[in-house]
Design a protein around this nucleic acid. Structure first.
Lengths: 89, 89
DNA sequence: CCATCATTTAGATAGTTGTCTAAATGATGT
DNA sequence: ACATCATTTAGACAACTATCTAAATGATGG
């Protein structure tokens, strides 16, 4: 849960996730949407990957990133349980 | 949304929120549950307050903190909308 | 193989944040 | 008023993080 929170706490990473909602994208395509270097994008993608929020798969020269919506859904559910009496997730 | 994420990204602050689920608590009671100084607790409470996640009310010498569940619920709902097609919150 | 393209890794730097100690503020009861 | 209790504020410091540039890795096509 901590990794997920840390990953989602950054606005750039949330934008990346938003972009990936539409379709899978390679690192370059993602980078093209932001005015930061590819290296920085790579860093963000790594954080998202470690949190399990995205999946990476190599396709030739490119690496294609996709959402792992399962992890996201689980996260939201845990969060929902937060305010229920006796809930102790 | 950004303030909420930042606020929730810290484990100590999430523990504070958990404690406040049970009952309202003053700053001292909250501090007693952690092994950090009162000053640090005060800092965390301030972050939570700025995010709108807790409310503070003075009662004599004490300041009583309580959850603002409305803000939390809104946050979770926004988050839920994140993966819905066309949703653009 | 080699030049090139796509991405990551390494190392540096500036800004942010969690923590501390010490001092200030606010409220109370005598 | 004053001593005391509860909390916050100020200032400092270490750890972390987002970003950069430069170099390294991995894959492709000729």
């Amino acid at each position: 849960m901590d990794a997920t929170f840390r990953a989602l706490a950054d606005p750039t990473r949330r934008e990346i996730l938003k972009a990936l909602r539409e379709r899978d994208l390679n690192a370059g395509d993602i980078g093209a949407r932001f005015s930061i270097t590819g290296a920085s994008i790579s860093h963000h993608l790594n954080v998202l990957k470690e949190a399990g929020l995205v999946l990476a798969e190599r396709d030739g020269r490119n690496i294609i990133y996709s959402l792992n919506s399962t992890v996201f859904q689980q996260f939201v559910e845990e969060l929902l349980g937060f305010f229920e009496v006796g809930g102790d997730k």
